[in-house]
């Protein structure tokens, strides 16, 4: 067990912790906006730490680039989705408030 693997395992564990925290928050929190807050934490930070932990295990350079690209796309999608959902929920318009 060399130190690089140890560090990578620690990062993956931190990421899994954020995922669990986000899922528990999504189920337990009472309000729609606080649930949105828990969701974006799990999206950005949790997957970020998992990607950071998997980065030293990448077999070649482009695999690492693709890992970073996955995280970047998820961050963009998470920010866009959170803004759109929050705006729709705040104004209460359209079919969202069924």
């Amino acid at each position: 067990m060399d130190p690089v693997q140890l560090l990578s395992g620690a990062f993956v564990l931190v990421g899994a912790f954020f995922f669990i925290a986000g899922t528990v928050g999504l189920i337990r929190l009472p309000d729609r906006f606080s649930r949105l807050h828990a969701l974006t934490k799990a999206d950005n930070v949790g997957l970020g730490f998992v990607v950071l932990g998997l980065m030293p295990l990448a077999p070649d350079f482009f695999y690492g680039v693709k890992l970073a690209l996955v995280w970047l796309l998820v961050v963009i999608a998470g920010a866009t989705g959170a803004h759109l959902i929050a705006k729709r929920a705040l104004r209460g318009d359209g079919e969202d408030v069924v």
Partner: peptide, 19 residues
């Protein structure tokens, strides 16, 4: 699904029809 539900429950989403 949005179009289908708008058609069947048209009295319910009157907020959408107003604007």
């Amino acid at each position: 699904a949005r179009r289908a539900s708008g058609r069947t429950t048209s009295p319910a989403d009157s907020g959408d029809a107003e604007d």
